[in-house]
Design a protein around this nucleic acid. Sequence first.
DNA 1: GTGAAAGCGCTAACAA
DNA 2: TTGTTAGCGCTTTCAC
Lengths: 332, 332
Amino acid sequence: MTRKDFPSLRLSDIAAAAGVGESTVSRVLRNSGSVSEETRARVRQVVAALGYVPNRIAGTLAAAGSRVVGIVVPSLTNIVFPDLLRGAAGQLDLMGYQAVIGVSDYDGAREAELVASMLAWRPAAVMITGLEHERATPDRLRSSGARVVEMLDVDGEGLDIVVGYSNRAAAEASARHLIGRGYRRIGYVGHEISRDTRAGKRLAGFEAELARHGLALVARELHAGPSSIGAGRDGLERLLARAPALDAVYFSNDDMAIGGYFHCVARGIAIPERLALFGFNGLDVARLAPQPLATILTPRVEIGREAARLALADEPAATVDLGFILIEGATA
Amino acid sequence: MTRKDFPSLRLSDIAAAAGVGESTVSRVLRNSGSVSEETRARVRQVVAALGYVPNRIAGTLAAAGSRVVGIVVPSLTNIVFPDLLRGAAGQLDLMGYQAVIGVSDYDGAREAELVASMLAWRPAAVMITGLEHERATPDRLRSSGARVVEMLDVDGEGLDIVVGYSNRAAAEASARHLIGRGYRRIGYVGHEISRDTRAGKRLAGFEAELARHGLALVARELHAGPSSIGAGRDGLERLLARAPALDAVYFSNDDMAIGGYFHCVARGIAIPERLALFGFNGLDVARLAPQPLATILTPRVEIGREAARLALADEPAATVDLGFILIEGATA
DNA sequence: GTGAAAGCGCTAACAA
DNA sequence: TTGTTAGCGCTTTCAC
C-alpha cells in the first residue's frame, strides 16, 4: 500500500451521501448562508460519520484569502523567540489562523528567502523581528499585499505595523541604573552585534548614556557567535583577565549574564560588592536565581499576541511601544 | 488603498510578458520538462523583473501534494520543544518543506483539534510528541494519508514513525546512579504527570528501579501545573519541609531541578553532601551551572532533524531510539 | 521544445 | 432554502 492510495473524501462525496448540493455542504461547513436546521443536521452527521476534513488548499484558492500567517524568527535557541511565538500562535489560533514558521539564524539573506517562500502561500500577514532587513525583504513584502508586523524593536522606521519596545531606551535605563548605584568602571560582554541588531542598538544606547555622564566602557568582550550561557561565562572570564579592575559588567542579554553570574559564583567573586552584573530580557532563570539578576523585563509574549492581533485587525499602520520594566534584582 | 488592491501577478502574466505559453513558464519555474536555454533565460528574466512569486496554493491544489509539514508541540515554554522544532524546521527547510506549528498546552483535546486543522492543509506529514493521544487523533491521522512521526518517546506502540528515547530507561539509569552513589532516602519533585505522560513514565521507571533495589520514594511533591524553575524551587522547599531527612531528590526535568538547585544555594544547603539533585534533559543552564547538574542529556535537536528526515523519506514505519547520555555532573 | 486545455476541490454568484 | 456553474492559479497530459 503506497501513500498515494488515500484519495481523501471531497465535498462532492459528502454532498452525494447527504443527498444535497455541494454548495449546501459548503454553507454548513462555513456556517454561512441559510440552511434549514434539518439539512444542516444531516450534513453534519454525514461529515462526522465519514470523517471528512475539508481541503483548505482548495478553499483558500477559491476564496482568495488564506488563513495563514508567516512568522520568521532569527533563532529558537534563545527562549525569547519561543515566547514571542507562543504569544503569536495563541492569538492566531484564537482568530482561526495558522502559523507557518521559519528560522533565519540571524541571517538577513535567509530571512529574505524565508519571507519569499512564505509569500508563496499568500499569507494574510507576515511577522518578522527587528526593523533592519535586506533590501529584497521590504520590496517583496510591500508588493505582496500581506500585512507586515515587525516585532521587538521600535527604534526606527517600520514597514507597516511595529510592536515592541525601545532597545535604546532600555539600555539607557540600564546605564543610568548602574551609574546611579555608583559604578564607574563598567565593562561589556556581548555577542555578534552585527547580526543581532537589537543587541547592537542596546550597546550603542548604553555607551551613549555613559558618555552623557562623562563615562565610557572600560573594556568589552565580543563573542563571535550567538548568545549563550557558555559564551557569557567565557566572555566574562576573558574580560576580567584583561580588565580586572572593573566594578560592573553590562551583558548583551540574560543568557550571557547568567553565564557571567555562574562564572562569578564558581570563582567566588562577590556579587555585587566586587562586581555588579546587569542583563536584558528578564528570563525566569535570571529572576529566580539565588541572587536575582538586575535586568530589563521585556513583554515578549504580549508583543507576540498584540502583533498577531494587529496583523489581522485591518487597522492602519502603527507603531506600538509595549515598554519594558527595569528589575533591580540583587546583582547590581 | 485597501488591502484587496493587490491582485498579485499570475503565471499567465509572466507567460504573456515573455511571449510563451503558461506551461512553459511552469516548466521553467519547476526545472522540469525540456525548455530551450534561450526561453528559459527569457522567462527567468521576466520573473525577476516583475518580482513574480508563484502561488503555492494553486500549485499544490493542481499537483496534489503539499510541501507542508504540521508540527504539534505541547509547549514552547520548556526549551526542549523549541530545540525539537529547530531540528525539524532546519531539516524540512533543507528538503524544501515548510513547518506549520501548533501548541497544545499538554491538552489532548487541543492536540486533536490542532491535528485536524493541520490536516486541512493536506500536509505531507504530521509530527507530534509522545505516544499517548486522544482517540480521535490516531483515527484522523490514519485516514489522512499523511506520514506521522511521534517524537521524544519510544516506550509504547507508535502509529507510524517513532523517533525518541526511552524515558523509562533514562529514569532507571538515573535511579541506579543515585543508588550507586549511596543515596537511600530519595524524594521526588515533579509537575503534572497526567498531562506530561513522558514525565509520568520517568517517575514510574524511577520507582520501579528503586523497588528492584528494595527502596521506595520517601516523599514526593507534585506541582499542579507545567514545569518551571519556580515550581521546582517551591516544590523542593515544600518537600524538605515535610521530609527533612532526604539525602537525594529526583526532579521531573532540568527546569524543576534548576529551581531546586537555586533553592539549595539560596538556603545554604550543601550539594551534594547534604542533598543530591538529579534532573532530566541536559539543558545548557544545568550543564553550565557552577555545580553542573547530574542529569540525562537528550538529543532533542537530532530527534527533530531525524524525525523530519524520516517523515519525508518514503520508508516503512519504524521506531528509532536515539538514546540518551547520563551526565554525572556535581550534584549527585 | 512548446502550447492548449482539462482538471485539482473548493467558494460564490446566480438561479430556481 | 437549495442547486448549478463558473472560476481561483496552477500542473499536467496530450498534441503539435
